[in-house]
Design a protein around this nucleic acid. Structure first.
Lengths: 349, 349
DNA sequence: TTGAAAGCGCTACCAA
DNA sequence: TTGGTAGCGCTTTCAA
């Protein structure tokens, strides 16, 4: 009893074995091994003893002895963000179905923090590491990150990147460019001609892909976004708010619709427009991307590109738990949802 | 190399020690122990070897050897729910600040699942277990849950319950009754007299406390809620939607405002009212509880009772990591926020 | 079917 | 300051 002050310490297999009057080996077999080779009577004695003492096997000890854990590690940018929490929901659901415990870490959108987290997580020897975060191009940490994950994989671990295809690991991507492309066409078909683009710094892949897809869609139709209507801002609600505020302040000047690269930003933008006396959906169209839960609850309901976030999480786990060795890449498709925030424009011309 | 097919296996301290030409003891000291007692030259050799081999200490092995882990366990009802994800954000933030890894499990609002999860989690030997979920009264699992947690605590673990005070452990509660009480008074002061109540089954503590507080607030003013306006429904957006739909179908019949016990339900209700051709805030007032992010983004903005969710998470961790032995109970206060969904009623009478 | 004992990767004590 | 070594709680041979 090393830590008397801290309480009696947890019950060990030894205690159970003694209580049941068998050896630890037998107790181990009865509880967590192939119970087949244990006499029924002994097996039930052991189980009774375990129940009586409220025994739980020490997972770390099992991990050491067995040489593997039953843990899945998940890295997200921010749990409180519905984008990530929906993915996390999918991941945890699949993990629990597979009998794995999830350890989750929050990188807070910082590549340095992400790297540090993965270093630590690797020490857990999880069965897999799923990384959901915006890959930042040109981050100084990229090589280190890749090396860390590579070392983990070569030691037998599985890596799955969610929504970031530029690292040589299993990947579940979202068709960001394709979805934005379709959105551009849909908005054009609804009569919109003068667009603004709210985006994150170009180093954020997700943002860049969505922008590129959107612009490609417009270009095919002979349309474009004027430079002064391209606003670079933060990847948050506040960023969207701020961008819209600036725009409204300056005057819309013929602008018809804003595409913000995430719903969260779009919702911030709607709020700013309203605060500036503009009615979203009437005075200015607004579209987002992701189809987070609240997209249907804002008024007017937000036009967006639906991403099956929970399913992305499920898929990531399926990929990571499969036997397929080579870097697999799964692309989940997206769906344009036109809602009241971008009503059909009847142009008179 | 036991598992040749699976890869070379992870680098161990032995490998590092050999590479550096020192004993494992020295390597251990240089890397994870008090580096003071290691000759500078050796220390840097070891660090160099560790870096070269991309070594990460096996956390499970450390846990076994040291007799304790650096893990915090968190149980939530549903990660994708903003209520829980905000709490989770607070918990993870505090955990990471304390150098703890978070393992998170989702109970899916089922007491049985919650119990099973806690059993498993206990095997992790985390430093603490934080349980954020709606306590269900009369659940058959209550005693088992309590026993499980008690066993964990008596073995030196810390338990903190979030928003549920009926178990004998450290607790961080939300002033559900008080907040609802204040809300009732505020609505009455704004001129409302005829109320509806959307609540979860009475066995859900949070729901019950909020209802009780609300009714107490009304009662003090000589007001009440008619039985036919008390709707029991699910604790979700769909539940709120359904309740409002039924109400609208039947006819409001003088009803002035609905208090739904969570924002998520209130937002569902707003949506149903709108679908029934009623304008929330004009034809019918709506109020919720929690002040989730989207409460300000719906239109009209939702009147609610703000709960400092992230802070609840932070506080829970602070309590659990403190030395204070006795069951501590911290109550976080709430704030009524009157918004456009319940405009002041000018009664002409 | 059982128990003794050798590890698993690491820490920490004890001697040197 | 160092290395040898005895554990930590568990699994899994290997003999009996």
């Amino acid at each position: 009893m090393p830590d008397g002050a801290e309480g009696p310490g947890a019950v060990t297999l030894h205690d159970v074995a003694r209580e049941a009057g068998v050896s630890v080996a037998t107790a181990s077999r009865a509880l967590n091994g192939s119970a087949r080779n244990v006499r029924t009577e002994n097996a039930s004695r052991v189980r009774a003893a375990a129940a009586k003492l409220n025994y739980r096997p020490h997972l770390s000890a099992q991990a050491i002895a067995r040489g593997q854990t039953r843990t899945a590690a998940l890295v997200v940018g921010d749990v409180a963000d519905p984008y990530f929490s929906a993915i996390a929901a999918g991941v945890t659901e699949a993990a629990e179905a597979a009998g794995l415990i999830v350890t989750m870490a929050v990188a807070g959108r910082s590549p340095e923090r992400e790297l540090e987290i993965i270093r630590t997580l690797r020490g857990q020897r999880p069965r897999l590491i799923a990384v959901a975060g915006s890959r930042i191009d040109g981050a100084a940490t990229r090589a280190a990150l890749s090396g860390e994950l590579e070392a983990y994989r070569s030691a037998g671990g599985r890596v799955v990147m969610i929504s970031q295809r530029d690292l040589p690991f299993d990947t579940v991507t979202i068709d960001n460019a394709g979805g934005a492309y379709q959105l551009a066409r849909a908005l054009a078909a609804a009569g919109y001609r003068r667009f603004a683009l709210f985006r994150a710094p170009a180093t954020v892949r997700t943002s860049r892909d969505r922008c590129a897809g959107f612009l490609a869609g417009l270009r095919e139709l002979g349309l474009a976004v004027e430079d002064r209507f391209v606003v670079e801002t933060e990847f948050t609600r506040a960023g969207g708010y701020e961008a819209a505020r600036r725009l409204a302040e300056r005057g819309l000047d013929g602008l018809e619709v804003v595409f913000a690269v995430t719903d969260v930003m779009a919702i911030g933008a709607m709020s700013a427009f309203r605060d500036a006396g503009l009615v979203p959906g009437r005075d200015i169209g607004v579209a987002g991307f992701d189809d987070i839960d609240s997209a249907v609850d804002v008024t007017p309901a937000l036009t967006t590109v639906a991403v099956p976030l929970r399913e992305v999480g499920l898929t990531a786990m399926r990929v990571a738990l499969s036997d397929d060795p080579g870097p697999v890449s799964v692309q989940t498709s997206t769906t344009v949802l036109l809602r009241e925030s971008t009503p059909v424009r009847s142009r008179t011309r």
